[in-house]
Each structure stands twice: as C-alpha cells, then as structure tokens.
C-alpha cells in the first residue's frame, strides 16, 4: 500500500501550477493504484449482476426439479444443481441483488443517521456534543449479533415478508456509529479553519456554514468509512440469513444458500462453495475499494 503514496508525494509538488483539491489529489493517486482498478472492476460486475441478472443466466432460479438433485454442471447450469435440484449458478447470480440491495440501503440509512449525528455533535459542541456522543456510545454498546437478532425479529412484518426491509433497517440502525464518530471528528477540525470564521463574519447562519463550508471539506473520511461499511453490511446480511433471522421465504440470498447447503456438504460441496466464493469476493472487493480510497484521501499519509 505504500507505493502509490510515495508516487503521489513525489509527483504532487512537481505537478503543474494549477492547485488541486483534496478529491483531485485523491483521484490522481487512485488512477495509478492497481488494487483500485481491480476492485472497481469486480464491484462493477457485481453491480451489473444485481441490476440485470438475466445478462448472466437465463435460467429461472425458482424452477427446481428434484430429479436434478446434486447433478453436476450441465448446459446453462455452470455450477451444477443443489439438493432441491435448483440451478446453483442461477441462484447465486440472482442472490446478488438482495445482498447488494440490503448492503446499499442499510449503508445509506447508516450514512444519513451518522451524518446528522456527527455534523450536529461536531458543529455545536458542548452540551449537544456530550448528549449526542453518549447516544453514540450507547448504540455502540449493543452487541451487534444480539441486537441484530432481536431487531430483525421485531421489525419483520410477519408471514409473507421476505425480510429485506427488516434486515436493512436492522443493519442501518446498528452500523451508523462509526460513521458518526468519524464525521464528528472531521467537523471539529474543519470548524476551526479560517474560511469558516470568515464566512461567519460575513453573516452566514449555522445551516449555511454546516452544509456549504464545513461539510464539503470534511466529508472525505466519512465516505471512506461508508465504503468499508458497505462490505461489512453485505457480510452481515449473509450472517443473519444464515442464522435464520435475515432474509426468508422466497428471497434468494447467499446466506440462505449457504445455510441450506451446509447439511449436505459432505455429499455435495458445490452448492456450499459457490455462494461462499461470491460472498467472499464481493465483500473483499468493497473492502479493497474502501482501503484504496482511504489511502488516497487520508491526509495523515500524505
């Protein structure tokens, strides 16, 4: 991870006279980072899979025939068939959508909550900060799995619900704390900058200060945290589905597939291995992307 930064440090002063923004600097670094490109390609493929699964497979993931039980790869079924005679490849591809959907929506929810808490706590400071920060500490104190099991059970709309909303809300409500803390600390440092003082003297109100001046200059680390959180939330969805408190019923997801296949793993490992590989690759791609973006943005390494 050190090479790209070294290049950046060497090149930045040697660049043209035109001043570059933080984002411009970061993009300059990222362009030269192989890991960034590899993970981006992977993420794009996964996103495409989620948006248009029919580009990858024409098989219906819900059409299962017992007569195909544990059959090997044949025709369109690249990965063979599982215990119920379902096409493992089709199910894995179609499972992408639920995983990505839950991952993105829960991260978005966590981001919104985290942004509000972090911005308010950092900007107002004092008593507001104390109250909000203790609130963050309390949520942070809830053991993740225990909280998730309790919440997703409570939030589920009962029978017929595929659990997507419940899992999204659960993950969003439990995961926002780290984002809020990062946001708060970068707001605190941005608040004391000269341009903020200048804007205030010119008569800008708190909302204008927060959103026009402080936020754009303190959001980078926050976005990095969200990228990392995205990978973690996708993995968390699979965990909850595996434990039987996540997606259920007709919903196809990698966690459900892994849970279904584990009992027969000694007889047929394929149905267990393939969704696990997809899950691991997707989570890895998002985390690597987050890492690369963080390296590019993090001022401490500069």
């Amino acid at each position: 991870m050190s090479d790209p930064n070294l290049i950046a440090m060497a090149e930045a002063p040697a660049g043209s006279g035109r001043p570059r923004s933080l984002a411009g600097d970061a993009w300059h670094d990222l362009r030269r980072n192989k890991i960034f490109w590899a993970s981006s390609v992977l993420v794009l493929v996964v996103l495409l899979m989620a948006l248009a699964p029919s580009l990858f497979t024409s098989a219906d993931p819900a059409a299962c025939a017992l007569s195909n039980k544990h059959k090997g790869p044949a025709g369109g079924a690249l990965f063979g068939y599982d215990f119920q005679g379902c096409d493992v490849f089709a199910r894995t591809v179609h499972g992408t959508r639920n995983s990505i959907e839950v991952g993105f929506l829960s991260t978005l929810l966590a981001g919104v909550i985290g942004l509000c808490f972090g911005l308010a706590a950092g900007y107002y400071g004092g008593a507001v900060d104390a109250v909000l920060s203790r609130g963050i500490d309390i949520v942070l104190g809830i053991p993740f799995l225990l909280g998730a099991v309790v919440f997703s059970g409570r939030l589920s709309a009962g029978e017929g619900d595929d659990g997507v909303t419940a899992v999204t809300l659960t993950l969003g409500l439990l995961a926002w704390t780290s984002a809020a803390r990062v946001m708060r600390s970068s707001v605190v440092s941005a608040k004391s900058q000269d341009y903020v003082a200048a804007a205030r003297m010119l008569g800008a109100g708190p909302l204008r200060l927060m959103f026009r001046h402080i936020l754009p200059n303190s959001i980078a680390p926050f976005i990095v945290v969200l990228t990392l959180m995205l990978g973690a939330n996708i993995a968390a969805e699979a965990t909850l589905s595996y434990l039987g408190v996540g997606l259920k019923g007709e919903a196809i997801s990698w966690g459900v597939q892994i849970a279904d296949a584990q009992g027969q793993a000694r007889v047929a490992a394929g149905p267990l291995v393939w969704p696990s590989v997809f899950l691991a690759a997707t989570v890895l791609a998002f985390i690597m992307l987050g890492d690369a973006v963080r390296d590019a943005f993090d001022p401490k390494l500069r």
């Binding site: 017992l66 039987g244 019923g249």
Partner: peptide
C-alpha cells in the same frame, strides 16, 4: 422438515403454476 417441504412446494409450483412457499 424444511428440505421436504421445499421439495413439495417446488413440485406444486411446477405442476400448478402457482406460487408456493414454505413458512417456518
């Protein structure tokens, strides 16, 4: 019971062309 309920549902789905779900 999950494995045979799912298998039964798949058969019902295929034969009757209706949606069938196992509810635990």
């Amino acid at each position: 019971h999950k494995s045979w309920v799912d298998a039964t549902c798949n058969q019902i789905k295929a034969a009757l062309r209706v949606n069938c779900t196992g509810v635990p």
